[in-house]
Design a protein around this nucleic acid. Structure first.
Length: 325
DNA sequence: CGGATTTGACCCGCGC
DNA sequence: GCGCGGGTCAAATCCG
């Protein structure tokens, strides 16, 4: 394939698969706009949209990864030489649009396990960092409520866990959306719990947590420093419940108001959920990053678009199968 | 009045 | 060891 190996990832077609996938949902939901057939892409694809290395740097920052070029971000060869990702990590990318020409470009990083030796993997480090944060506040709480013996057992357990081993990090999914509003409606309820100034950026980063009890999903939202019209949203974790919008009857919100804004993020969130579910459900199934991408890149016209709520393995059976020789 | 947001303080990992 | 930056907490405040 010579220099074409960079084109091995057919992101457009990949997201095309998601169009009917999404449209079917919105249409079947309740009077949501059905006109969301896949529009022609205004960009040639991810490569054209992310032109500068700064763009990749921006994405990499969102993921706490260290790639800075497209090849590093998406290229298998780069993995071979740099070993930026663990074998169980997977990366996806894509770009899509809605009818208002808002553009969504996304890259997802999915990690299944993180118990191997820390080594020098930047991804591993990123994961620790993440969970380090979780443990931090846990510890804080423990110490604060140390005197009371009420919920001591839980805390002790937590502490033990914390001490014994590093927790495996939550899967993440980040994407960029061209949007005027920072916090995109995605059907879930979020409570903001923090905001920090981002270094080298005029725009702050907001931290959200899913308001549903027992749901530990978090979400970071920041505006791109390079292109302020772009919002970078990073989901972390997996919802343990259904989308409240489906039961709250707020689908009209998606349909009316900000459909243009809501669609890309919603679809992406959906997409991210599929990935995370897949990752958690099939730790040993994914045989590696390379296979993941190759399977993803495979010209799989045979892929069927299933019903809403299907997992990624339903969409792409070859993805979860162990790699063929 | 209850839930969400704001915002300064705090913790911790990491690089120097 | 120290400072910096990211992430979170929690009291104060806002708002419907």
């Amino acid at each position: 394939m010579s220099g074409d190996n960079k084109e091995f990832f057919h992101y457009e077609s990949f997201f095309d698969h998601n169009y009917p996938f999404f449209s079917q949902h919105s249409g079947g939901g309740s009077g949501d706009p059905q006109g969301f057939e896949a529009p022609p892409l205004p960009y040639g694809g991810f490569t054209e949209y992310l032109q500068s290395s700064a763009d990749y740097g921006m994405l990499s920052k969102a993921f706490d990864l260290s790639f800075s070029t497209k090849e590093e971000a998406f290229g298998v060869p780069a993995l071979g030489k740099e070993k930026k990702l663990e074998s169980e990590d997977a990366v996806i990318a894509g770009v899509s649009t809605n009818e208002n020409s808002s553009v969504m470009a996304g890259v997802g990083v999915m990690s299944v396990t993180a118990n191997s030796s820390p080594s020098s993997s930047s991804v591993e480090v990123a994961g620790e960092e993440d969970y380090g944060a979780c443990e931090k506040d846990r510890k804080k709480n423990e110490e604060a409520g140390e005197e009371e013996n009420g919920g001591e057992k839980d805390k002790n357990i937590t502490k033990q866990k914390k001490k014994g081993e590093k927790r495996q990090r939550e899967p993440r999914f980040a994407f960029m959306t061209k949007s005027e509003v920072d916090h995109l409606e995605d059907g879930y309820r979020w409570r903001k719990y923090g905001q920090k100034a981002v270094k080298n950026s005029n725009y702050p980063r907001s931290y959200y947590r899913c308001t549903t009890q027992k749901c530990t999903v978090k979400k970071r939202v920041e505006r791109s420093h390079q292109d302020p019209s772009i919002v970078i949203t990073t989901y972390e974790g997996q919802h343990t419940h259904h989308c409240p919008a489906n039961v709250r009857g707020s689908s009209h919100l998606l349909a009316n108001q900000s459909s243009a804004m809501a669609m890309p993020s919603f679809r992406a969130e959906l997409f991210g959920r599929q990935l995370t579910q897949l990752g958690l459900a099939n730790p040993s199934a994914s045989s590696g990053y390379g296979n993941f991408l190759q399977n993803l890149a495979a010209p799989s016209q045979q892929l069927q678009i299933p019903y809403y709520g299907a997992l990624l393995q339903d969409i792409m059976p070859s993805f979860v199968k162990s790699s063929q020789p």
